[in-house]
Amino acid sequence: MEGLSRLLAFLVALPPAALAIMIVVAAFSGGGGAGVVERYLTAWRQGGVRAAWAVGAIFYLLLVGWFLFRAWSRPMKGMTLLARTPHGKVQISRLAVEGLIRGAVAGFVGIRGLRVRIRTVSDGIAIGLHVASDLKVGLPALGEKIQQATRHVLESATGMEPKEIQITFEPVEVERKSPLR
C-alpha cells in the first residue's frame, strides 16, 4: 500500500477497532480482581451476550491486526536498487539482479556453487561473488570470465555498470560445510 491507500486502510480500520476495544473493556469491567475472568467464563457458558460480543470483538481485532500487518507496506531496507534513466527511476530488486548474475555464470565449467552479495555504493553497486569451484580449473581465467559475464549482463539488462566485482574462490569442500546458494 502506498500513500493515500495506507491512510484509507488505517481510517477504515480505526473506528471499528476502537469499538471492538470498548466492547472488550466493557465485557471485562464490572469489578476487579481474578473474579472478572471467572464471571466472564460463566457468562460465556450460560450464553451471555457480553461474552459473545467480547469474543467477536477480540476476533475482529486480531483479524484487523493481521490484515494491516500483511497489507501495510514495510520499507525493505536495501532490498531495491535504483537506476536513473532519462525517463525517470527504475527500481530493481536485489533478487532480480542476483538471478541475472546466476544465469550469466551458470554454464561455466568448474563452478559448483555461487553466493552473490550486492552492496550499494555512492554512485552504483558493488558485487561480491563467493564461488565454490573445483581447484583443478584455472582460477584467474575463470574469475575474469565471471567478471566479464557479470558486467555484461548487468549493463545490458539493467543499464547499471557495477563499480566493483570482487570474486572469492572457495574449494568445494568448504561448500559442503557452509552451503553456497
Rank of each mutant, 00 (worst) to 15 (best):
S156L: 04
I146P: 02
F59S: 15
E161N: 08
M22L: 15
A52I: 08
G48K: 02
S29Y: 05
T85Y: 14
L14Y: 10
L68W: 03
G103H: 07
K89N: 14
G65C: 09
T168P: 00
V64R: 03
E98S: 14
A52Q: 12
M79Y: 05
V153A: 06
R119P: 01
G113M: 06
G33E: 05
K177P: 00
V24L: 04
I92T: 07
E175A: 10
A126K: 04
L41T: 01
L142N: 07
R74C: 04
L114Q: 02
V36P: 01
G103V: 08
H152P: 00
G99N: 11
P162A: 09
P140K: 13
H87T: 15
L41Y: 02
G78Y: 03
I118M: 03
F67Y: 13
R39H: 08
E164M: 11
G103P: 09
L41F: 09
V24R: 00
W53G: 13
I101A: 11
T80N: 12
V25M: 02
S29L: 05
L129P: 02
R84P: 07
L139C: 08
I125C: 02
L4V: 12
Q166E: 12
A157H: 01
E173F: 04
F169K: 06
R50H: 07
G128K: 08
A149Q: 04
R50L: 12
G143C: 09
D134G: 09
G159M: 02
E170D: 09
V12D: 07
Q46N: 14
G33H: 02
V116A: 06
A132E: 05
D123Q: 10
M76L: 14
W44A: 13
K77T: 13
L180V: 03
E144R: 11
G32A: 12
E173N: 08
A106T: 06
A17Y: 01
P75D: 13
G3Y: 06
M160F: 04
L11F: 09
W72S: 15
L8E: 10
L61K: 06
P16I: 11
A51W: 02
V12T: 12
I111Y: 04
R94Y: 03
D134H: 06
L14T: 14
L19D: 03
G48I: 01
I21R: 04
F59A: 15
G159K: 00
G113E: 06
K163G: 03
